[in-house]
């Protein structure tokens, strides 16, 4: 088995398939007070991220849209990861995940425990697919900072 096949298995792990088949928090959020759209025109991937923020804490989070397994799983994992976290911590997580996906583990906060999100780091070996994994996170960031422009990764 070549390195490419190893990399493929590192990326397409059961966690990814599970979250692609049964995405968590896949619904609009009527109580949301933050939301943003994300679009990757190159892939056609499109999603909306909803956040309900109260007293500086992300109380609930969800998404709807369509995309490849990587982008769907990334969005699903993200909505789980941010729930219950203070906004400042979510922003720090966004920066660390972005660093993890684009530059590697060493670029992120050494103290950061990525938990299940670690699985996404497999995209590093697939430069053409990094944008699939980062789309939801850019959209999350836009939703938090109240950016109304659609987030794009391409």
């Amino acid at each position: 088995m070549s390195g490419m096949q190893d990399s493929l298995r590192e990326l397409y792990q059961e966690v990814i398939f599970d979250h692609n088949r049964n995405p968590r928090n896949y619904r609009p959020l009527p109580a949301a007070n933050h939301h943003a759209d994300g679009h990757n025109p190159l892939c056609g991937d499109q999603l909306t991220v909803y956040l309900q923020v109260e007293d500086g804490i992300v109380r609930d989070s969800s998404f709807v849209g369509h995309g490849c397994a990587i982008s769907t799983a990334s969005a699903s994992l993200m909505t789980e990861a941010v729930k219950g976290k203070p906004v400042a911590e979510v922003e720090a997580l966004f920066r660390d995940v972005h660093a993890l996906l684009t530059e590697g583990r060493e670029a992120a906060d050494p103290a950061r425990d990525f938990g299940k999100l670690e699985v996404l780091s497999g995209v590093k070996e697939f430069p053409a697919r990094v944008k699939c994994a980062t789309l939801a996170w850019h959209t999350l960031h836009n939703a938090l900072v109240g950016e109304h422009e659609t987030a794009h990764t391409e």
Binding site: Q5, L8, R129, C132
Partner: peptide
């Protein structure tokens, strides 16, 4: 299609 493209490439 993008997942398929990546897997076929490997």
């Amino acid at each position: 299609p993008h997942d398929l493209g990546t897997i076929l490439d490997a």
